[in-house]
Each structure stands twice: as C-alpha cells, then as structure tokens.
Computed example of a mutant assay.
Amino acid sequence: MSDKGFTELRLDGVSRSFGSANALKDLRLNIKGQEFVALLGPSGCGKSTALNCLAGLLPLSGGSIWIDEKRIDGLAPEARGFGMVFQNYALFPHMSVRANIGFGLKMRRVSKVDTKRRVDEALRLVQLTEHASKFPAQLSGGQQQRVAIARAVVLEPPVVLMDEPLSNLDAKLRIEMRMEIRRLHQTFGLTTVYVTHDQEEALSLADRLVVLRDGEVQQIGAPEEVYAQPANGYVASFMGYRNMLTLDVVSADGSGIVVEGTGIRLSGTNRDGLTAGQAVTAIRPEDFVIGDVTANSVEVTVEIVEYHGRELSVSARLPSGEPVYFRTDKRLAPGDTAKISVPAERVLVFAP
C-alpha cells in the first residue's frame, strides 16, 4: 500500500477568486513523491482553498495542476483518485469500522477478496483490528481519526490531502496523533499535503512548510529554515517570535544593525537591508535570559506570571510601556523589576 505512481505534483500559478476577492494568488509549488508538505497560516489565509483546488472541490480561476506530465485540474475529484481526511472525519455512523474503510473500494468495484486483504492491512497499520466491527459512536476521537486516515489510504492514492484533522482533539491526543500520522506517512510511503494553523504541528510533521498570508506565499522551506530564518516579519510573528518591537534604526553595517527606543538599545541581524527609519525587531520569548548577560539588555516591569511546569511564562512592560514576553525558571511576581537580555544573533530586524 504505497504511493509509487509519480515523481512530482506541481501547482503552476494556481489562483482562486470568489467574486472580486482573491482567496489564492499565483501559488507555485512542486511536491515530490512521498514528501510531506504542510500549508500553514491563520484562518482565511488560503490554505484550505489551496487544498480544495488540489482535490478538485473548487475549480481554478487561473493556473494549472500537474502530476508529472499529466494535467489534472480539469479532472473531476473522483477521477484524480486522491485520498482526503476531513476535519470532522465524515465517517458513516451506520457503518462499522470495516465497512467505513472499505466503502471507497466497494464504490470502485474492487473484488471482495482484494477488498478484504487491503482493509485488513489498513486496520493492522492503524492498530484498529480488534475494533473492526464497532461503529464510529463507539470509538474515541483518536480512533475515529485513524479510521478516516485508513479509509483514505486503503485506496492506494497518489496523494493524501488532510484538512486540519487534529483540530477537534484534546491536547494530549493531538500529540499522540501527530506521531501516528507521521508513522503512517512513512509506512505507506505517502505523498501528503496537510493543512494546519498550528505551527508546532507543522514543524513536527512536515518535510517542508508553505506559509500563506492573504492567499499569497510568504515562505517555502524546511521546518528548521522557516523556524530559524523567517523570510519577513509576518512569518516571524507566526513562527513564535512573539516579541515584535517597533524601534528606530541607529546604525547598520552589512548584516549587523543597531536599533533603539525608549529605554532599550539592541544589536541584531539586518534581514531587510535597512539603513534608517523604523524597523520591526523580532525576538522569541525563550531567547531572553534573566540578568545582564549580554550587551542587549533592558529593564522590565513584570505584569503577569503563568506557571508552565518547569518554567514561568512572563508578560512584562518595557520602559516605553510596550509589552514584552519571556520565559524563565526563576521565581518572579507581578510588580517585580527584572533585567533581561538576549544574544544579538537571536534578534532579527525586518522592515516594518
């Protein structure tokens, strides 16, 4: 049950408009066979539109979709043969687990012997063999999700499309199912396109991330590249750089830059070739440390402290009154003052 049928899935300038609103603009993406690609962004960024265009559920307003040298955007959804896992699983409540998984094979008139063999294999791989005769209402959320995945992959599709399949699960189950999806992707040798708004989910699952904003691609890259080297301030803010401080450029020298504001002066990396004017300075909360450890230090007033197990998540105020967020294992309380600092290489400076 592996996907060996093609080398590359190509989206060539794919666009989709709803009236005068452009939900997706000129999406260009090459996906290799057996690659796991995550479309990432907030609600309304165009990621589900892109997935529905791939599935054939929405016609294109522009561009084309290709599998190797075959153009497929004119094909009906069922003719594309893609597997799809929906957010709400879309299981048939009156059918057993076995019948749900085998439904697509029955519609394709696959022989009973071959259907039984393929469903048995799918049940084994999603670890639901002993639940084959149960109905969806008798299963947990995670088990229902595994049924939905098995139903998609039992068809031996060239591509599996997943639309936020973990969003209805609790936090513990989401973590477990992330590992399960990655395991199944590797076991089946699938090509997977996965839509999510959760950057942690995307980082842990995907071979490559596609970050979207207002229907346009902001960055495509490996998880470690997008995480550590965001292309712009939007990607930085979405990938966990919670501190986005508007400061003035003091000086710039090659990739180095110095910015300052009321009571704060920082050295960092000049990501947009700025030489003057205002800049947005991006810093992750976990990159701050307590104390005057580096030249990049500032005194803050603690406002809110949240206990997160081994560390505290702290919301504080800069001398300018602007909020700043950091994490620490040191005990702090609202009203405390603290000096925090950050290494210059962890400070990214973008155009506003």
Score class of each variant (00 low, 15 high):
Gln34Asn: 07
Leu125His: 01
Lys106Ile: 08
Gly44His: 09
Lys106Glu: 14
Leu91Met: 03
Leu51Pro: 05
Glu35Trp: 14
Thr49Glu: 13
Asn30Tyr: 03
Asn52Pro: 06
Lys116His: 11
Phe36Ser: 08
Leu60Gln: 08
Ser64Pro: 01
Cys45Gly: 10
Lys134Trp: 07
Lys112Thr: 05
Leu91Tyr: 04
Ser20Cys: 09
Val37Glu: 02
Ser20Gln: 09
Gly63Pro: 00
Pro42His: 05
Ala76Phe: 04
Val119Asn: 07
Pro77Asn: 00
Ala38Pro: 01
Thr129Cys: 04
Val37Asn: 03
Gln34Gly: 12
Thr49Tyr: 00
Lys112Pro: 04
Leu39Ala: 02
Asp68Glu: 07
Leu29Thr: 00
Gly81Ser: 12
Leu40Val: 05
Val110Gly: 03
Ile31Ser: 01
Gly63Lys: 02
Leu24Met: 08
Asp120Arg: 11
Ala21Pro: 06
Arg109Cys: 06
Tyr89Pro: 02
Ala50Gly: 05
Ser43Ile: 02
Lys112Cys: 10
Ala99Asn: 10
Met95Val: 06
Leu40Lys: 01
Ile72Pro: 12
Glu69Phe: 00
His94Leu: 05
Lys32Trp: 10
Asn88Gln: 15
Leu91Phe: 14
Arg124Asn: 15
Leu125Lys: 15
Lys32Thr: 03
Leu51Met: 12
Glu130Arg: 15
Gly83Tyr: 07
Ala99Glu: 15
Val37Gln: 02
